[in-house]
Structure formats: C-alpha cells, structure tokens
Design a protein around this nucleic acid. Structure first.
Lengths: 196, 196
DNA sequence: TCTTTATCTGAACACACGTTCAGATCAAGC
DNA sequence: GCTTGATCTGAACGTGTGTTCAGATAAAGA
C-alpha cells in the first residue's frame, strides 16, 4: 500500500487540490469522479472528505483561490502613474498569469456553470472587480488623451478575451517564449486601443 | 401522454438536437443525461436511440454540424478583392455568427475535451481551416501594405479570441445592438492589426 | 511504553448513468 | 379494414456516482 493510515495530513490536502485542478482542467468537473481524484493522490475516495465537505466545495475553493490570487498578485504589482504604462503592465501581467496558471484560468472560465448559484455570484463578483480594474485604466488613459476607444467597457472585454485566448494555442517549449508572446500581444493591444 | 408511439419521426430528430445543444451549452456535456434530453423533447430516453447511436455521436454531430455551417456560410459570403475589406467582412461575419449561434459557438470551444480522440481531430482540423482563412487574409493585407502585424498566425488567434469573447458578455436586448457591437469590434480589430 | 488522536481503508448506501429490447401503439399503404 | 413498419414506452441491465462511517493503522505526546 502506497499510503497508510495516520500519516500525511499536511501533504494530502494540497495534493488533492492539485490533482483536482489538473483533472478538472483536462476532463471537466462533471466528468471527474471523486474516486479518480483520490486515486491520483494515492488514497481512497473516503479520505478526501477529511479535507473537503463535498465535491462542489472543492471546485469552489479552486476557483475562489484562483481569483483571490489573481487579484492579490495584480494589486501587489507596482503600478506606474502613467495610464499607458499601467495598461502595458496589466497586459503583461495578464499574459504571464494566463500562461503560468493555465489550468486555473481554464477552469475559472469553463466551470462557472457548474457552480451552485450562491458560489457563482461570488466568483462572478471577483471577476467583475478584475475587469473593472482594466476598465479604470482605459478610462484614465482616455481622460489623459493617451488612447481612444469607442467604449471602455467593451474594450476591456475585448482585451481580456484577446489576452486570455493565448492559452488556446500556447504550448510551453513552442516557437515563442513567454516574453515574446507578451510583446506581440502588447503591440496589438496598444494599437487596438488607439495608442499608436 | 403528450406523445404516443408511431408518430413524429420527422419532428423528434431535430428536437433532440436542439434540446441537446441547449442543455450541453448550459450545463456541459458530462452533466447532461440522456434522460434529461429526452424529457425536454417529451419522450422516453430509449426513443433517442432511434436517432443517434450514442451520446458521444450526438455531441460530435452537433460540433461537426456547427463547424460545417460556419465554414459554408463564410465561404458563401461575398469576398471583396481588397484584403482590408475582406478582413472587415470576416470580423463582421464572425461577430454575427457568434451572437446568433451563441450556444453552438460555446460548446464548440467548451466540449472539445469531451470528444473521443478520433472525433476531436476532425473538429480540430475544421477549426484550423477556419483560422487559416483569417490568417490568409492577414497575410494578403500585409503583402499589400495595408496592415502590419508582427506575426500573422498569432494575430489571427488574438483576433478570434477577441471576437469570440463577445459571447461572454453580450445579452440580447441589452445596451448595444448586434450592429453596434460589430462596429465597435471592427474598430478595435482594424487598429489592432495596424490598419489605422 | 502506552495512550491518544488524526488519518485512512474498505465496504456500504441510495441513486443516476448510458444503453438495450420486448412489446405496445399508431400512421400509412393496400 | 387489415397489415405492415416505423416509433415510442417502460422496465431492465450492469456500472459508476457522491457520500457516510465503523474500524484499522500509525505517528505523536506523556
């Protein structure tokens, strides 16, 4: 037996979350059974319930953790005073985050519909905050005359869609490095918002 | 009993596909049971098997049908000789399609991972053809000196990501009409590819 | 060394799943 | 009006689901 009783509480918890994240991202929440997650961790299904109340809470915890980390990390990055520089920082931040947390990003877009309503509204609120931050940058830039978009709200959505799309094609070790991808996307994003 | 034996073959088939499309888009392939689809149609689960060999074939058929329609509709739309005009046509076409076939677009991005390998490669090939068409337009525009992107392949991905993202926020009867949305996105897309 | 306690096993629960199929039912063709 | 054949029902099959829990196990503290 790979794992026996009374042993690895401090290591099993994180491993459950990692396995669940990977499996949810690959196959989808509904398609992954608790037994499958448990077997990935090297444990019986019942043991999972020492760490989470139920499957839904596991999904919610992953999404919540991801959104919290996204917001905290962004808020902790140095924010230039100049709106255009702040926009560049945002674009590069989002690309980096999307590439390094590919699975989290993926399920946080994909599995929203599998959240129970009260969980859904919480995650949606966090996402709204994040989008709002980008929109604020665009408004500032607009006010400063550094860029021109017909509609800051739509522009924010369009930019995030464009940036997040990177994880539909990017593969580590491919033709382009993370830095090159960020540069390419910043070039297009900058032009898209009319900041020559 | 709402529906009895020996009756509505020509109407049940399409209704199954419609119900499956709607339910798959809302809850995800794995989360929707055959019994649920059947009940939506007003029929017992067993009756579905007069129309499809199994659940997987139903999903594949929906995705294949969608991709075929996407490609055929695009190929049937008049293509201006001028690359920039062709790009505008593509952008407007994609926005319109994304808004009008929201559910199809959604599952064709969302449920790829639930396709069995041999089905997956077929759909992926069709998607590749579609993306290739956009990339060709960008290459033509580049050659004609009408636009400038650092990388036509990445630009194509970025544009499609941006355009498809519209269905994460667009709601019918909202603040903007389909035409207005298309105009906003074309404005940003045009600038993004450096076609002032 | 012994006891305690967190941790895990293994079996069980009730239920839902995709799929099959014999038999009922009705529309259409003769 | 009778027969035929497509269409649907309703029950069943084996398997898998999320979750619970009594009992086994081993690490930690006295």
């Amino acid at each position: 037996m790979a794992r026996t009783a009374g042993s690895h509480s401090d290591i099993t918890g994180p491993r459950i979350r990692e396995a669940a994240l990977r499996l949810f991202a690959k196959h989808g929440y509904a398609a992954v059974s608790m037994r499958r997650i448990a077997s990935e961790v090297g444990v019986q299904a019942g043991a999972l319930y020492n760490y989470i109340p139920d499957k839904q809470a596991l999904l919610f915890s992953l999404l919540k953790g991801h959104m919290d980390e996204l917001l905290e990390t962004w808020e902790a990055t140095p924010q230039p005073a100049d709106p255009l520089a702040r926009l560049e920082a945002f674009v590069r931040f989002h690309i980096r985050f999307t590439l390094r947390r590919a699975e989290s990003i993926f399920i946080s877009y994909m599995e929203l519909r599998n959240l129970e309503p009260e969980n859904f509204v919480q995650i949606e609120a966090l996402r709204g905050r994040y989008e709002g931050m980008l929109e604020q940058i665009l408004r500032d830039g607009q006010a400063a005359g550094q860029l021109s978009v017909p509609d800051t709200r739509i522009a924010a959505f369009a930019l995030i869609g464009m940036l997040t799309g990177v994880n539909t094609w990017y593969r580590e070790g491919g033709r382009l490095s993370e830095e090159e991808v960020a540069a390419l996307y910043w070039d297009m994003a900058r032009k898209a918002v009319g900041a020559g």
